[in-house]
Design a protein around this nucleic acid. Structure first.
Lengths: 343, 343
DNA sequence: GGCCTGAATGTAAGCGCTTACATTTCTTAA
DNA sequence: TTAAGAAATGTAAGCGCTTACATTCAGGCC
């Protein structure tokens, strides 16, 4: 044990320096910009590093270098496959660039999200990924003050100027609703996540209304039931829809999970999809294809979004001043859960 | 702007101290142990904190306090709902205790996992969550040297002495296999994830063999096809099984995702589950109940495991010397995908 | 009043690293 | 051979915070 007995036996840069008979500066350079160190010295230093089992102290590094190489993400929940996928891709891409991912989830709760954002920034995140635009202005103010580059994902509104990677939830849903209407459905209902602080859900519902308007009908007639995320909640929401509006022939859900829940309820109620009732989802996660019948839905490139988000955030951190806004294309996937209106 | 122009305008402890006319020590105490500061002073300081929008510098804090309040997890992938759930619960529980979660994924790749572990430790993780026991000894040595408390999850072997929270994969699968055998199945095949560096998969396969032995048959006869995680791969694996062992009447998969893939293949091949062939999974994730027919599988309390993992790791960090090993119960869920052997 | 005690606050020494700047050593070309 | 420039290395000043220890100050007691 040549390393200092201080620091609990964990070797420090200074220990390595002593072991390799160089200054701490040289060791630091070996580790961070090896090309600036002579080959012989470098080998000697790396050997010392290995022998001592040295690993840099993160706090010290962060303090001195003024960056943590850490990117944070606050997502509603990892249990939603949509975010799990995106986050996975996000992390992979970050990892490729030597960044680490800090994660917190808000459980779709605005207040909790704010706390999480503050906590993660306090943890030294160099950059931040957030889902959707909706949030209190003071969070944005805080982020600006703390100079934390922030990227919004999973939403895309042309009029928003914040750095964004996402897709046009509204337009995508409008397109899907058109297809539903084209099948002759006159009484459409919608099962939505709570729209209060969730622009994605809100936009999707509005997208349906747009299509209804375009078809010359009254968008105010659209029956909307809001419910938290989940299969069971989707089930209950469907029953509510059928109670409130029994004439409904097509139910459009703002995500696949709710749609699967609805699908279950349909079956339990003894109806047939799509003969008696058509059903659509959004996201195109695995269960959409696995459901019986498979769900008509909007395919969203979640993985790609995660990857792009990482790239864009990295770019912003690097100081690239390019337009940091990217719209990804979605795609309607017509499957058996959508059929012509009965009668 | 009363705060120093240095540091890019981001306020520091010293700025707050000056603003509130106290020493930095007092500010620090206000933030970390408020009870040790007089009420008037405390209020004044907190006001200054708010006015300046102060947030502590993480690196400095970590360096001085010698801990980061950060816990890391390396999991195979978040795209597997099993880990997404567990991780979500893990994070929630950590958050409740003021800890933040660092995440990396290994993509089931041992070498990548090693890199990730090193990276996360270098990022100053106070503790570490790892999946399964299998890994190179030098990783364990490294962790010991770095004095990073580590908890293993998703596995549980009575003979292992490392801190662990998990379940007995082998015993659970044995139990399930018994049920399959009890249905008269003589020709069982298994679709497994690669077992080379995955003790969970290996134990499950061995669990089937145990049941076969117990039934007085030859465990060596078990046909095992290994394939990476995924629905499509499960599909292909099933075809391979039926090519290699066409007499098979029950296919036991080491997880639900592979089972769902197999189920698809069964259908494409024009067979009926469970009339022509029985199928089982493992994990009991949502798709298990959504599949047609619903999958017989082993229910694993993923969320609970995540939560317990957090609690245990926190305990270890606190220095509690209790036995840090916890076995969770699994439960067989018999559903329609399992039926009596044909003939 | 003087002394003691404990609470409140201040002083200042690091924590382990990066990096600007200084110094030394090697190349290279006249 | 030598001066000039480049490359390699060393020196040391922080980075912003925590905390051991020192100081101050009230109040209580004899």
């Amino acid at each position: 044990m040549t390393n200092s007995t201080k620091n609990n036996g964990v070797p420090t840069l200074a220990d390595v320096a002593q072991h390799a008979n160089v200054s701490t500066a040289t060791v630091s350079r070996c580790l961070n910009s090896p090309e600036r160190v002579g080959e012989k010295t470098r080998k000697r230093v790396m050997k010392a590093v290995r022998e001592l089992g040295y690993a840099p102290n993160f706090g010290a590094q962060a303090l001195a270098a003024r960056q943590t190489n850490t990117i944070a993400a606050v997502i509603p929940t990892m249990e939603n496959a949509v975010f799990a996928r995106g986050l996975q891709a996000f992390q992979e891409e970050l990892g490729r660039h030597g960044k680490t991912l800090l994660v917190a989830s808000s459980a779709y709760d605005a207040e909790l999200e704010e706390q999480q954002v503050r906590a993660l920034v306090a943890r030294g995140a160099d950059g931040l990924l957030l889902i959707g635009y909706d949030r209190a202005p003071d969070i944005y103010a805080f982020l600006a003050k703390q100079q934390v580059p922030t990227l919004i994902a999973w939403s895309f509104k042309p009029e928003e100027k914040r750095p964004t990677v996402g897709f046009d939830n509204r337009a995508a849903m409008t397109e899907l609703a058109r297809q539903v209407i084209a099948q002759g459905h006159q009484h459409i209902a919608c099962i939505s996540a709570p729209t209060a602080s969730n622009d994605r859900a809100r936009e999707r519902v509005d997208g349906i209304r747009d299509a209804i308007s375009q078809a010359g009908q009254n968008p105010a007639d659209l029956v909307v039931v809001e419910t938290p995320y989940g299969i069971e909640t989707g089930e209950r929401a469907f029953r509510q829809v059928m109670t409130e509006a029994p004439q409904t022939t097509a139910v459009m859900c703002v995500n696949d999970v709710l749609a699967v829940g609805a699908l279950r309820a349909v079956r339990e109620m003894g109806m047939k999809v799509p003969d008696d009732l058509s059903l659509t989802g959004f996201d195109d996660i695995e269960i959409a294809t696995l459901a019986e019948p498979p769900l008509t839905t909007v395919h969203v490139p979640h993985r790609e979004m995660g990857r792009c988000a990482a790239d864009m955030l990295l770019q912003i951190l690097r100081g690239d001043q390019n337009g940091h806004t990217l719209e990804l294309a979605t795609e309607i996937r017509i499957r058996q859960s959508l059929g012509p209106a009965p009668d």
